[in-house]
């Protein structure tokens, strides 16, 4: 009986795979697609494991997407000599992460919490799902998963097509924009250029995105879509009191161990900022939060140097403004809030 030529078939298949994948990678690079890391639970867990670095050498950031866009990690390190550990997550409520850090007896570091009112003062389970999934993954991570992450890091650092958010089969299918039947819900898709992710979990907009007002409109339309979904009034009354109490307890746990906590209100602009002021009056939310927790806070509107940013899509800073914001943030922290960065002289 004729025996199939298995060896030749394997080599042939291998050649086809290598050629097609190489062609795909070359095409992506030639079309100016920068490397973007998969900002999933694995990358988050990698950063979460770093929070135990000494207080005088690292600062942990939690919050929503604004912290990821607005804080330039390279500038932060350059100015402070401090290691920024970015644990903020897009579209999420940071309180599960705060709670996780509060319960972790080993965490005694500096913590900066970004307050995006619509997400922060919210009980919506959907806003907590992402953080909870990542926290659970971090605590249950296996040695095999840690090793896979290391291998993946090496590959992702070299190959654009491994960006799962944009170039996986499902992502490509989603981008086909096949019209749905009436009434079928589909999550909107952000332009890739809006959110390139570095290995340190900093997000940035590409120059092409910053320059293209049509792309801005795509994103502002998505904000409008999310706003239309949320018909609930802003949190108030006993549920807000209870939420504030939880935050107060968590902050106290960290402070009692010698940790430092500071709240920051990162910039927004245009209709977004107007809506936030109307929905979440400062006295009722921000001021109360600071008064209750006794923590220092930095609100962008209080500082003329950073009060008038124009966010391309109303909610996040473009890279150049992120540098300005970070420089001013470090300055305010040192001069006004008394934060000291012992590593500063070494870095400079």
């Amino acid at each position: 009986m004729h025996q199939p030529q298995w060896g030749k078939a394997c080599v042939f298949a291998l050649v086809i795979i290598v050629l097609s994948v190489s062609a795909w990678e070359i095409w992506l690079r030639n079309h100016h697609n920068p490397l973007s890391y998969d900002d999933g639970k694995e990358l988050w867990a990698d950063k979460r494991a770093m929070v135990y670095e000494p207080q005088d050498k690292a600062t942990v950031f939690i919050g929503s997407s604004r912290n990821k866009y607005d804080l330039d990690l390279t500038i932060w390190t350059k100015l402070t000599g401090d290691h920024p550990i970015q644990l903020a997550m897009e579209g999420s409520n940071p309180l599960p992460v705060l709670d996780d850090l509060a319960k972790d007896q080993k965490f005694k570091g500096k913590l900066i919490i970004d307050v995006t009112e619509g997400l922060f003062f919210s009980l919506a389970p959907g806003n907590k799902g992402g953080p909870q999934e990542r926290i659970e993954y971090y605590h249950k991570r296996t040695p095999a998963q840690k090793f896979s992450f290391l291998v993946n890091r090496e590959l992702e650092s070299r190959l654009v097509f491994l960006d799962k958010e944009s170039y996986s089969l499902n992502a490509m299918l989603d981008k086909l924009h096949v019209p749905n039947r009436k009434g079928v819900f589909q999550m909107p898709i952000f332009p890739r250029e809006f959110g390139i992710v570095t290995f340190d979990r900093q997000n940035y907009m590409t120059p092409e995105f910053v320059a293209d007002s049509n792309e801005h409109k795509k994103v502002t339309a998505i904000w409008e879509f999310f706003r239309s979904l949320n018909t609930d009034p802003p949190l108030s009354g006993p549920p807000l009191d209870s939420l504030m109490k939880t935050i107060q307890d968590d902050v106290k746990k960290i402070q009692d161990r010698g940790g430092k906590v500071l709240f920051v209100r990162t910039p927004s602009s245009g209709p977004f900022w107007m809506g936030e002021q109307m929905g979440f009056p400062r006295a009722k939310y921000w001021d109360r939060l600071l008064a209750l927790t006794g923590c220092p806070g930095i609100h962008f509107a209080d500082y003329p140097a950073v009060a008038s940013f124009v966010c391309p899509e109303w909610s996040h800073l473009k890279p150049a403004d992120a540098v300005t914001w970070t420089i001013n943030l470090v300055d305010i922290l040192q001069k006004e809030k008394g934060w000291v960065f012992p590593g500063k002289t070494v870095a400079q």
Binding site: T142, A144, Q145, F147, S148, V151, N152, L155
Partner: peptide
């Protein structure tokens, strides 16, 4: 480890 992981490929 599971088969569909980088760890397994190296292993």
């Amino acid at each position: 480890m599971v088969f569909n992981s980088y760890t397994f490929i190296v292993f």
